[in-house]
């Protein structure tokens, strides 16, 4: 029981790292980026290639996974995405689906359609015992790494100059621009960081979520749920939503394996019926 909850938390934290960039772009630029998973996939493949072709240890590949996805994110933001900020949601949806399709087909062409396997180092395999509960070493590692990232993100947002500028821009872009905050730069930096985090999540999650060219399509719904349920005003909202979703998904697949795949849909439905505007949306925001 506790093991399952712990697994669920690890899974949820992973989902959060994957989706947090989407939540911020949505809040900041009101941009529905369905291609967010493509950046995660890029990070995952960066790790796979570095490990298998260049023999780098797993941990050492993680910064590259972040940087690779962030660079792609930055390039695409400057080239294409920024033209889309003011467009209708329909245009944004079509545009980002187009990006997803291109990413899926290109990855298939370059890497093949098979599932990629990551060989974790010895010390991350097996199980360890924490306070009498047996948990997978890798799950534990995930919780530690993702937990550290969450704390770091929160710190950046709450304590740094960049963080306060970002929050101002989320609250009201026009006013922020009027105050001399370089919103363009913030957009680009945020987009790149969000993509980088997704890439890192993709690398960390390759073991648990699986990695093949259809990754961005498979997890599109998960990202949407995290963002819709969690709202875009804070990062604690998506975090709570991701953890809940993670626990629900893991527990569902464990306890009712026959219907486990339906648990996330059920989750989505319940949230929607109870709180159509999300669980953690700031009240009075609208």
């Amino acid at each position: 029981m506790l093991t399952i909850i712990f697994d669920g938390i690890a899974y949820g934290m992973l989902l959060f790292i994957l989706a947090v960039g989407l939540s911020v772009t949505l809040g900041l630029m009101n941009f529905v980026n369905l291609a967010h998973g493509a950046f995660a996939m890029a990070g995952g493949y960066a790790t796979v290639i570095l490990m298998n072709a260049y023999g780098l240890p797993f941990l050492a590949t993680l910064p590259f996974a972040f940087a690779f996805a962030a660079m792609i994110g930055l390039a695409l933001e400057r080239l294409l995405y920024r033209r889309m900020y003011r467009r209708s949601h329909l245009d944004q949806v079509l545009f980002s689906i187009g990006i997803v399709f291109m990413a899926v087909a290109a990855t298939d062409y370059l890497m093949g359609s098979q599932q990629q396997i990551i060989h974790l180092p010895e010390w991350l395999r097996g199980r360890i015992e924490v306070a009498g509960v047996a948990i997978g070493a890798y799950r534990f590692f995930l919780v530690v790494v993702c937990g550290a990232l969450v704390v770091a993100l929160q710190w950046v947002l709450a304590r740094t100059r960049f963080g306060s500028q970002l929050r101002a821009a989320v609250d009201d872009t026009r006013v922020a621009r009027g105050l001399g905050i370089p919103t363009d730069l913030i957009f680009a930096a945020t987009f790149a960081t969000g993509s980088g985090l997704a890439g890192l999540g993709g690398a960390l999650g390759a073991e648990i979520l699986g990695l093949d060219p259809t990754f961005p399509l498979k997890f599109m719904l998960y990202f949407l749920i995290v963002v819709t349920v969690g709202g875009t005003a804070t990062i604690s909202g998506p975090f709570a939503a991701a953890i809940l979703l993670g626990i629900a998904d893991v527990a569902g697949k464990y306890y009712i394996p026959r219907l486990g795949a339906f648990v996330i849909y059920f989750f989505m439905l319940v949230v929607l019926l109870l709180r159509p505007n999300g669980l953690f949306v700031r009240s009075g925001a609208r």
Partner: peptide
């Protein structure tokens, strides 16, 4: 891939 490219170009 082409479908994606067409979508992006169209938008």
């Amino acid at each position: 891939f082409w479908m994606g490219a067409i979508l992006v170009a169209l938008v």
